[in-house]
Design a protein around this nucleic acid. Structure first.
Length: 403
DNA sequence: AGTCCACAGGAAGGGCAGGCGA
DNA sequence: TCGCCTGCCCTTCCTGTGGACT
């Protein structure tokens, strides 16, 4: 057994890889050239340029769907800005935080604590009053003249979770500082995000905004071509494969991230099969694999109660005898039976309703509040994942819960 | 027009774990 | 050790709601 593993690893090392730089297809890669985003890059640069004169740039809000290049663009502009600032000895600091990262920046306390940590202050994960954390941050920031650009990615998720008070507090930070100046750069997938804010918060923002439109299939093709040149050995990716990737991603609101993921996973599948080129069927397989992997990754680490609710949702169709719409009541009944089977104490319907909403936010299901007249108002639940993924998930949950 | 259903979802608060400072 | 603070998970209580039915 051990010997064959050794052989496998040796074979792997001796094999010629079809990748040259796989990182070029991942989210962490910041390309020097970002196709079809010149206008947005210039706008960002114009808005942030005053920082080079030690003037506080306007707060900036960037809107656009997933994979429209928001993050990569702002990171690119900021890194160029930092280069110039370094050359000219200008005190400029850029802090990037993703508000969706659980346990990092998903509450007001954690966000400010993380900002303070970025400024080199050690803040405990819990235990201090929030005011105190703000004070620690002020002290860390305000010891010299400095421009700080705070990029808050997926800010809509933070506001959804904690309310918009935090945004008001953030914009007021400048009035507490004497030397340093702070600008907030918010990135949101939700274009209606701003309209849901309290008017008081909206006026305190006083911001500029840039909207990133989705890429079309031709633009996605360009992006894939430029990245595949960096990522793969010459000749591995055919034009047909790129066109197919682009078409797949264009189908989903022009998501470049999805297109790059497809190409990367298809490459990995081809390499595993010892193919020297990526075939079109690898794209189909990659599409399936990405969906399953993403959902499995999402549910990893979820508590047993959430998994039981998800299992109830996954098995709705089997138990829906009248074959009517699947709704909250049905899920709750299934869930209670599952709890009995698994020896768990069941939660209240109120709480289960929140857990169902969480799965909706994760994108595993889609829910819609409907009224059935005198038969009540409820939430219609529809699965967003393929049958194969659903079956795989069910198996994982069964093993986890011993049911 | 009024009733009624089956919830949705907001608000308040309890209980717990965990960190910090006195 | 104790009191105080936090986040998190959860319950309880409550009001609101769209449309079929009477």
């Amino acid at each position: 057994m051990q010997l064959s593993l050794q052989k496998l690893f040796e074979n792997y090392l001796n094999k010629k890889s079809i990748f040259v730089n796989k990182d070029a297809l991942t989210i962490k890669y910041t390309p020097y050239d970002i196709p079809h985003r010149d206008e947005q890059i210039n706008l960002c640069a114009q808005i942030l340029a005053p920082s080079l004169r030690m003037e506080r740039p306007s707060n900036l809000f960037i809107y656009g769907k997933t994979g429209t290049g928001k993050t990569v663009t702002i990171k690119h502009v900021c890194s160029e800005l930092e280069k110039v600032a370094n050359d000219k000895n200008i005190s400029l600091k850029v802090i990037y935080l993703n508000c969706k990262m659980r346990k990092v920046a998903d509450t007001e306390y954690r966000l400010i604590a993380q900002l303070a940590r970025e400024m080199g202050v050690d803040v405990p994960a819990t235990g201090l009053p929030t005011d105190e954390v703000y004070n620690l941050f002020y002290k860390a920031v305000d010891d010299k003249e400095l421009i700080i650009l705070i990029i808050l990615d997926e800010i809509d998720q933070l506001i959804k979770k904690t309310g918009d008070e935090i945004l008001y507090n953030l914009t007021r930070i400048n009035s507490e500082l004497t030397k340093a100046k702070i600008s907030i750069i918010g990135i949101s997938n939700d274009i209606t995000f701003k309209s849901n804010l309290d008017p008081r918060v909206r006026s305190s923002l006083n911001e500029e905004e840039i909207i990133f439109p989705p890429y079309d299939a031709l633009q996605l093709k360009d992006i894939l071509e430029s990245r595949s040149k960096i990522a793969f050995v010459n000749g591995v990716v055919s034009e047909a494969v790129i066109a197919k990737c682009a078409a797949f991603a264009a189908r989903e609101h022009g998501d470049a991230r999805k297109a790059l993921d497809l190409l990367r996973v298809a490459g990995e599948l081809a390499e595993r099969e010892n193919c020297e080129t990526i075939l079109e069927r690898h794209i189909d397989e990659a599409d399936e694999k990405i969906e399953t992997d993403q959902v499995v990754e999402l549910i990893k680490g979820l508590p047993k109660q959430s998994l039981t609710v998800l299992y109830a949702i996954l098995s709705m169709d089997k138990f829906n005898e009248e074959n009517s719409e699947n709704h909250t009541g049905l899920v709750y009944n299934l869930y209670k039976n599952l709890c009995l089977k698994a020896g768990l104490k069941n939660l209240t319907q109120r709480r289960v309703s929140d857990l169902i909403n969480e799965f909706d936010m994760m994108g595993i299901i889609t829910t819609k509040v409907i009224s059935k007249g005198r038969y009540g108002r409820t939430k219609e639940i529809e699965l967003n994942i393929s049958k194969e993924t659903s079956e795989k998930l069910s198996k994982i949950i069964e093993e986890n819960l011993n049911i």
